[in-house]
Structure formats: structure tokens, C-alpha cells
Design a protein around this nucleic acid. Sequence first.
DNA 1: ATGGTGGGAACCCCA
Length: 255
Amino acid sequence: MKIASWNVNSLKVRLEHVLQWLESAQPDVLALQETKMTDDVFPKAAIEAAGYHVVYAGQKTYNGVAIIAKEPPQDVITDIPDLIDPQRRILAATVNDVRIIDLYVVNGSAPGTEKFSYKLNWLDKVTQFIEQQMSEYDDVVVLGDFNIAPDDRDVHDPDKWYEKILCTTEERNALNKILDLGFQDSFRLLHEDAGFFSWWDYRMNGFVRGLGLRIDLILCSEEMSEAVTASYIDIEPRQWERPSDHTPVVTEFDW
DNA sequence: ATGGTGGGAACCCCA
């Protein structure tokens, strides 16, 4: 089973990239973030024509998540307890008996801001939801744009980013609370080195200069973590014309 | 030196 995540930064602009990547990579599951479109205009037919099923939760202009899968996603959840929120950032569904939880984590702007507090509160509620899902499902994958670099190996210049947004101790502690529920960062099961990134700022020629962070993660529960056979970041789509600022991350399971 | 680029909307917000 091959599971992937990609923040596409507008599915309207990136649809051809997604279709091209599905065609070549043939994932069983591709979780999208930042589709930035309402459900009534979602390109369902184009994705189905590529041989996939898809479920989605979108809104106008901002956010938006989708799960594309070879088998039909079941038992879809778009809203969680204690978080009444018009922002479409959460999508859970079951595919091949694996519970997939697709997250577009709040960016948070900067430490000390209202958005930062909202991010931490959002993560707290989502952590409670994941804990509930863990009690209901045996095999769980939580993936998406976490907007948190797990540790300094995931940051091109840790000194420059010290306690900056995406790298603060508070955000990392919040991520660790999810991991403590019984998850592994699948990429780190197979790669210990620094310098692997999934997002590069459009500004200042970030991709060419290697100014990246690894903030797109695929977390898997215990039994699945023992079945990981490969985990990698596919930087090719970041080199395509008019790319997303994120590139797909992939984990393969003997499942 | 506190910038810049990109997406979407609508002359500004968000990342």
C-alpha cells in the first residue's frame, strides 16, 4: 500500500500536476491540502477518469482537503467534537481498512499572535479526535501539511528558524503529543539525516537555494510502522512549471 | 535589509 500527501496550493491551478503525478506514481491513497475550492466545483470527474475515487471538504479561497484513493473511501468525517469551525482542514476516511486522517494544520503566522493560539487550540482538539479514532480503528495513518518541522534536522538553517513559526517548542510539543498516542513519523523510520525538505518558500528563490523545511508528514500507528518498506519525498513536481510550494511525500507499506 | 512570490479575491488576506 502506497500512501502520499501533497499540499497543492490551489487544486484549480494544480489539477494537471495531480493527474500527472497520479499517473506516474500510482499511489493507493493521495491526501491533498489547500485545494482552495468549494465542493460544487471540485474536479471529481477528472480524478475519477484517472481511475480513482475521491472525497473532499472544501471552502472558498482558503484551506480545503481531499482524499483520493483507488478503493472507495468509507465513513467520511469532516468535523470533530468541540471544534465548530468553518475552516475545512480535516478529513477522515477508511481506505482498505486503514483509517486515513488528512490534516491541513493551521499555519499560525507567528508566536504570540491570535493565529498562533488558534493553532495550538486546534492541535489540541485534533489530538483528542485522533485519540478517539485510535480507540475505534486498529490501523491509523495521520498525514498532511503539519506546518511543524519535527526537529532541527528538518530545517535548512535551524539558527535562523530558532523559535520561529513552524519550529517553536510549543508546536513541537503539540506534535509530540500526537506521536505519543502511538505514532511514528514514517520518514524517520528509514532516514536519520538532516536536509530532507517538503516545502520551500516561493520567495527568495527558496527551492533553488535549498531553503526548505520538512513539514509534510505521514504518521502511522504501531502495526503499520512495522510494515513500512519505503518513505521518501518526491521533489520532481516542485521542479515542474508553476509548481506548488510543497512537493509530495510518500510512504509505502507491505500491507 | 524585516524584503520577496504566489493564489485568490477584489483593491487585501493568507501562506
